[in-house]
Simulated scan of single mutants.
Amino acid sequence: MAFEKILVLSHHRSWRTRGLEAAARLTDIELQIPPQPNNPKSLISAFQGIGPDDVNHPPTGSATAWLAHLDLIKFAVASDFETALIIEDDVDWDISVKEQMKLLSRAIRDFTGTPASDPRPYGLDWDILWFGHCGGPYDRNSPRHEYWDPSVRDGELYTGWMKDYVTSMPEKTRYVQHGAGLVCSFAYAINRKTVTNVLDWSGQGQDEGFDIRLRTGCMNKKINCVSVYPELMHHYEPTANYISEVRQGDGKGQAGAEDALESEMGITANIRDSARCAALWGRPCPAPPGTT
């Protein structure tokens, strides 16, 4: 994928990491899963309370995940990586992801005006490259670069807030644009040149979650975000009734038993040929409910 490191955000081994590693082996991708510090409850509580009472504050599960993202970004800084792709441990991608990223690299270079003399696959004229998301508000009038990608899933099978935008796009087409209100931090890249912008902004707390804070920064141009639509990575859900650890931490349900989550094939929305399903079950994931 042409990043110096691909770092996985994960607190412990589980069905999430085992499926991710299987997908990585299938698609010949090298991952690093750095150990995460066990942030004490007092630190999480203090982070939740940053700022005045009239701003949004993250619930416990979201604050815990937010600090984990900050810890991993700081790990990349301390390691002096020029570029790093950060992915959450339940992420999935298409079996053709390497070909997808080659097409995206050319599109981002064209969009950002990266000179031919710069050998970096994505240039460095960005703070965040947002590859994995679940959509959000968008600006049809924002400058964009359109490019052909044969792996784009049919728009009628797309799910989420951006369905009407995606279905209005030409077939087998993706757009590169400046970020305009995305949510879900499934996969994003940072670079050594501008990572302090990301840390300065996201380290202030004062929002519902890490991804919402990034979204606000993108929309207010506090950070320079470049995104791809439709997304290249999305989260895999093992069952229709799946409850994530973040949602459980926020008091919004109870995660299922580990063996049940691992043994039953789930779904990955908006990805044509899931690498997880191919690696674990040897066949495509079923389509998400309501898309067939």
Rank of each mutant, 00 (worst) to 15 (best):
37 P>T: 03
48 Q>H: 00
203 G>I: 04
12 H>R: 14
230 P>C: 07
23 A>I: 01
170 P>L: 03
288 P>A: 15
124 L>K: 08
24 A>F: 07
222 K>N: 09
102 K>V: 03
196 T>H: 13
273 D>E: 12
24 A>V: 10
63 A>Q: 00
164 D>S: 15
119 P>D: 13
143 P>R: 07
257 A>I: 00
34 P>C: 04
225 C>Q: 10
224 N>H: 12
19 G>N: 12
167 T>C: 02
235 H>V: 10
284 P>Q: 14
190 I>H: 03
176 V>N: 09
60 T>D: 13
174 R>F: 03
129 L>I: 10
20 L>M: 10
54 D>W: 09
221 K>Y: 04
292 T>F: 00
130 W>N: 12
111 F>C: 09
229 Y>L: 13
212 I>M: 07
170 P>S: 06
156 E>T: 14
30 E>G: 08
196 T>C: 07
115 P>D: 11
58 P>E: 02
172 K>T: 08
144 R>Q: 07
279 A>D: 11
196 T>A: 09
270 N>A: 14
45 S>M: 02
131 F>E: 08
289 P>D: 06
192 R>D: 11
66 W>H: 13
227 S>K: 08
170 P>Y: 00
183 V>Q: 10
115 P>F: 06
208 E>A: 13
232 L>F: 11
15 W>L: 00
110 D>W: 04
158 Y>L: 14
83 T>C: 08
275 A>P: 13
175 Y>M: 06
28 D>I: 02
165 Y>M: 12
126 W>N: 09
237 E>N: 15
94 D>L: 04
150 P>C: 05
55 V>G: 06
29 I>C: 02
92 D>N: 15
212 I>S: 11
28 D>G: 06
121 P>G: 02
207 D>V: 00
7 L>R: 05
218 C>D: 11
184 C>Y: 03
192 R>S: 12
214 L>I: 14
55 V>S: 04
124 L>N: 10
89 D>I: 00
75 F>Y: 15
211 D>A: 07
290 G>E: 14
28 D>A: 07
281 W>L: 13
133 H>P: 09
231 E>G: 12
40 P>L: 01
123 G>N: 10
258 E>L: 01
264 E>Y: 02
25 R>K: 13
184 C>P: 07
168 S>Y: 03
74 K>W: 11
14 S>I: 09
93 W>E: 09
211 D>Q: 10
183 V>R: 04
231 E>C: 14
134 C>R: 15
205 G>V: 04
166 V>S: 05
98 K>W: 00
207 D>E: 11
124 L>V: 10
252 K>P: 04
22 A>H: 03
